[in-house]
Design a protein around this nucleic acid. Structure first.
Length: 567
RNA sequence: UGCCUCGUGGUGUAAUUGGCAACACGUCUGACUCUGGAUCAGAAGAGUUCAGGUUCGAGCCCUGACGAGGCAGCCA
């Protein structure tokens, strides 16, 4: 199921790779890279990129490097480096010993900058950030050349070296590539290569006070690592001429140039009912709209993991959404489909009641407990069976009873008979209410002949409901998660409002659930199907005497569909 | 009024490189079922943004419109 797309049509990057292999462009060698910036946690969009890059390597007998794009020390942190590594590993990919950092190459990048200065294609500019920005022009108007553009090579060399030695404060000078201030491509208008930042870097410490910009670093890092296919998202499309320009000016070996790394762009993943921008996710975390990066409502990989998603389901998802250049918004329902499909085959079944209604079975003897046999997973016989205790007082789901049932309601109602899963047929004889007229309890009778749920005389019931023995059930906290935003496109907000105003106030509901004793001893992230309700996993916050379950996703519910259609 | 990229069922992705559009999700039927789950069978839904052109034949090629996204960080 997961990332095996054999027999399927190739996407455009696979086509390029196969063509390159066919023509022997890189001697048949394939080396991709995943280049995250360690300034936030990875999200499902990154998962698409990870699956693409590592997947390409796997499929074509190549390798994929992990390279942290750590060229901006003020936003980056080791916390993020660690989480990123954990997430990639959890997704099932291995970069072996090829763990790199752009900062590993700072010296080489610096030396190449010197080379470009000597070639007369890079210069030190004393203009302020505002001045540089003002003289850059606009997409429709050409920019103006900096007054410092024509400094001598000697002066540029001297200034740049002094920049690197810390002689100038932040923001007073930059190194720029001398390209074309009138280029229709904004990125070619003398882009900044280095800026001064007297900041502590998580790896190089205080060794440097000048840091390369993305554009100057990325292509050269790819080149140093001998990457064959540098795959990135669409917004970098306009950077490609610059990517090539730097390499053209640094490498003048025609033999090397022939098989040089090339950049290819694909459309990033977008999901409805959530946001995917690291900046916005950071805001949700920092301003406590959610409980951290791994909040189960977050589209982060760590959030999805804690929500109960399996890595296989995410790989399957990445496979299903495809790779193309067209902007896309994937329905979150597809992600839900993927996890249901995976968990249906794997998850241990359990009976749990999350909205309890007490039922007394009047003709069942008091003080008696029976152990009834239940199937652990009807999709996988090898998972065996378990015993579930049954007694006179049980809980059933409030939703499974209606005093005045509509026509299509098959569950319990006064006088009707249902099957208690793996137990007995049961009939409701009386409804007990409190002063406010709310139903507080049901009085029922069972048919002792129907033990195990088999009809004694061949009579049928329209429905089977789940239950839990009141005396034996474990109380647990159950966290019912729903989509994070109420709007398909969270950014669509009225005047003066922002995406946080579209947060779903009901994205988390916490209830007390009653779960069959089997749940005891489960470990964090263990996955279950609470029969007829949904898939759940044990939250890592659980302790020995307090179990917490996260709802991963509900089961498909055709009754809910009927009711929602009628109102 | 610049440059780049992209327009195929509701959503995504295909179409052997010119032979009357396929797959998945979703939707809707029905069958089966000790989960209104799962499974199985079936159906509806696009004539490919539009207009011209080339061709026996165009989603694929050409021209021109229109629409969407990206680009004006010393972010990546």
């Amino acid at each position: 199921m997961s990332n095996g797309n054999e027999g399927r049509n190739l996407h455009f990057i696979e086509e390029i790779v196969e063509e390159d292999i066919r023509t022997g462009k890189h001697g048949g060698r394939i080396l991709t890279r995943f280049p995250p910036e360690p300034n936030g946690y990875l999200h499902i969009g990154h998962a698409k990129s990870i699956c693409l890059n590592f997947g390409l390597a796997k499929k074509y007998n190549g390798k994929c490097n992990l390279r942290f794009d750590d060229t901006n020390p003020v936003t980056e942190d080791v916390e993020y480096v660690d989480s990123i590594k954990e997430d990639i590993r959890w997704l099932g990919f291995d970069w072996e010993d090829r763990e790199f950092f752009a900062s590993d190459y700072f010296q080489q990048l610096f030396d190449w900058a010197i080379l470009l200065i000597k070639k007369g294609v890079a210069y030190v500019d004393d203009c302020s950030a505002d001045e540089v920005s003002a003289s850059r022009g606009t997409p429709t108007r050409p920019g103006k050349e900096s007054p410092f553009r024509n400094r001598s090579v000697e002066e540029n060399l001297d200034l740049f070296i002094r920049m690197s030695k810390g002689e100038f404060p932040d923001g007073t000078k930059v190194l720029r590539a001398k390209i074309d201030m009138a280029s229709p491509n904004m990125h070619m208008r003398d882009p900044v290569m280095y800026r001064i930042k007297h900041a502590h870097h998580h790896r190089t410490g205080d060794k440097w006070c000048i840091y390369p910009m993305y554009d100057y670093a990325h292509g050269q890092c790819d080149f140093i690592e001998n990457i064959t296919h540098s795959v990135c998202t669409l917004e970098f499309e306009v950077h490609k001429p610059l990517y090539d320009w730097f390499l053209d000016n640094i490498i003048d070996d025609p033999g090397v140039n022939k098989s040089r790394t090339r950049q290819y762009e694909f459309a990033r993943l977008n999901l409805n009912y959530t946001v995917m921008s690291k900046r916005m996710l950071l805001k949700l975390v920092k301003e406590n709209y959610v409980n951290g990066w791994d909040d189960p409502r977050m589209p982060t990989i760590s959030g999805l993991r804690r929500r109960g998603y399996t890595s296989g389901s995410i790989r399957d998802f990445a496979d299903r959404v495809g790779v193309a250049k067209r902007e896309n918004i994937i329905d979150i329902g597809l992600l839900e489909f993927c996890i249901r499909e995976d968990l249906n085959k794997k998850a241990q079944r359990l009976m749990a009641v999350i909205n309890p209604l007490k039922v007394v079975i009047e003709n069942y003897p008091e003080g008696v407990t029976e152990e009834l046999e239940a199937v652990n997973n009807p999709e996988d016989e090898s998972m065996g069976t378990r015993k579930v205790p049954f007694s006179r007082v049980i809980y059933i789901e409030k939703d499974d009873f209606m005093e005045e049932p509509p026509k299509k309601f098959f569950r319990l109602s006064p006088g009707s008979e249902v099957r208690l899963r793996y137990a007995y047929f049961m009939k409701c004889t009386d409804v007990v209410k409190n002063g406010a007229g709310e139903i507080t309890e049901l009085r029922c009778t069972y048919d002792p002949e129907s033990k195990g749920g088999k009809s004694p005389d061949g009579r049928k019931v329209k429905s089977t409901i789940h239950w839990v023995s009141a005396e034996h059930a474990i109380e647990a906290e159950v966290r019912l998660y729903d989509r994070l935003f109420v709007k398909e496109n969270p950014y669509e907000a009225e005047e003066g409002k922002t995406f946080v105003d579209n947060l779903n106030p009901d994205s988390l509901k916490t209830v007390t659930g009653y779960i069959e004793p089997f749940a005891k001893g489960s470990k964090p992230l263990d996955k279950f199907q609470f029969e007829r309700i949904g898939y759940f996993c044990l939250d890592p916050d659980s302790s020995g005497n307090k179990l917490i379950f996260n709802r991963t996703v509900t089961l498909k519910d055709s009754w809910a569909k009927i009711t929602s259609k009628e109102c």
